[in-house]
Structures are given as structure tokens and as C-alpha cells.
Amino acid sequence: MSRYFRAEIKENRPVDKSYNILGLKPLKPSREPEPGQFYMIGIGGEYDPLLKRPFSVFRKNSDGFQILYRIKGRGTLLMRDMKEGVVIDVLGPLGNSYPLPDKGQIPLIVAGGIGIASVFSLAEKLSGESYMFYGARNRDELLMLNELKGLAEELFISTDDGSSGRKGTIADVLNDFLTHPSPVTQAKACGYSIYACGPKPMLEAVSRIAIDKGLNGYVSLEENMACGVGACLGCVVKTREGYKRVCKEGPVFPIEEIVW
């Protein structure tokens, strides 16, 4: 099954004023994505924009899969206008995926902003087992809350402006949770495993907390990307073993590996 295929747009609908869900149906059998993997999406225009854009797989569905994207730059603005029925070029699923927690470990899923797109399917896969920490700039940018409530054992929310959940960063919420664990989680926990995706400062803060408390875990990273298959060496991040490619060795990296 080729990882380079054409896919029909089944839906491209707003979930909020600056977020859309793009549903794609591959026109030939394609590989099943795992949580944490990504696709390179061709956004048309003969040569401008030139490169495909990387997006995490948000959810699998009966047609194929969905991408949850934030309308931010030129590429995503053009994506917003792509119509149902249009056929586009897609490369994927690419990269590695989130390793599942060891038996007895409680998964702590931490999402910041659009980072929710990457960890959502992990929460689905771990149905009900995970504790979820989700931060955004404000209440409007918290997406899929109803679905998330059903997916996690417990859902913690923070916003930068305090319009929903706790005012402050989601890393602080995680830190408090780990510093003052409830008797219930303490009784259950045979260690934790952290899964985080979001803006770099958040990932760095989460990583420090994890290292501080001796927990293992993973962060999903992003970088500007051209090829998505490990050839161009454009998307590297600094690790303890030198530069590694987000598209190939990542996007999911063990927390202790990353040099911030």
C-alpha cells in the first residue's frame, strides 16, 4: 500500500472560527495511521504554495481519517477554502507514533492549543485510562471538550486569560497534579507516562517537570518540513545524540532526549 495517494475531501468544516476539520477519503487502500503520526497534505496551486504541509492525524473514521487544523498562515487559509469532492495529493502516514504506557502506568496526556490534534487519537486509543491536561489561550480555543470528557478519566483545563478552567499554563496544572496527587490516583498509580504536544515553551516546561519528578514520557515536535520522508534534513531538532529528523526519528521523542 503506497503512502503516496490521492484522497477525496469528504468534509472541511469549521469547529471554531479559526479551526477546521478536514476529512479525507483515500482513493485507494492506504495504511492505517497510529496516534502521533502525520500526513503531508497537498494544498493545490500549481507551484505556490509549493510544499505539502504536515498535519497530525486527528482521528480515523469510516471514510479514512481527519485532520484538525488551525487557520493561521497562507497555506491553511487556502486549505480552509478547499471544497468537498475535490481530490488532493497526500503522503502518509509518516513518522513514528506514541509508544503505549507500560502496564500499570497512568498516561498523562498534555495538550497545548492545536497540540490537541495530535494527542486526541491517543486519548481515544487509551479510552478512559488517561488523565488529560488541556490548555489554550482562551475558552473559544478549547476544542472538542465534550468528546474529551468522555475519553479521559479526568480532564483538567487551563486558559491563559482564565476564561475557562484555571488561569495559567497547563504545565502548572500538571505540576500541581503530580505534586499533590489525589488519594485515588496515588492508590492506582504504578508510575506515570507523559504524552505532550503543543507549543515549544509548554513542551519544555512539561519536560522539566517530568525530569524533575523522574517520570518518563514523550513529546511530539514540529519543525518546518519539506519532504516528510527523511531526505531533505530540513526538519531537525537538537537531541543528546545530535540532530534528529522530526519526520523520521520523530515526531514523537522521549522527553530526556531533547535538548531545549
Binding site: Y47, L50, L51, N224, L233, C235, V236, V237, K238, Y243
Partner: peptide, 14 residues
């Protein structure tokens, strides 16, 4: 090699 960002897109190029 160089530190990131290493690539950026430009009109019809990179």
C-alpha cells in the same frame, strides 16, 4: 549541519 529553522518556503520555491 546548521541549527533549525533550516528551510522556509518562498513564492514558488524554498
Amino acid at each position: 549541519g546548521n541549527p533549525p529553522p533550516r528551510i522556509i518556503e518562498t513564492p514558488a520555491g524554498m
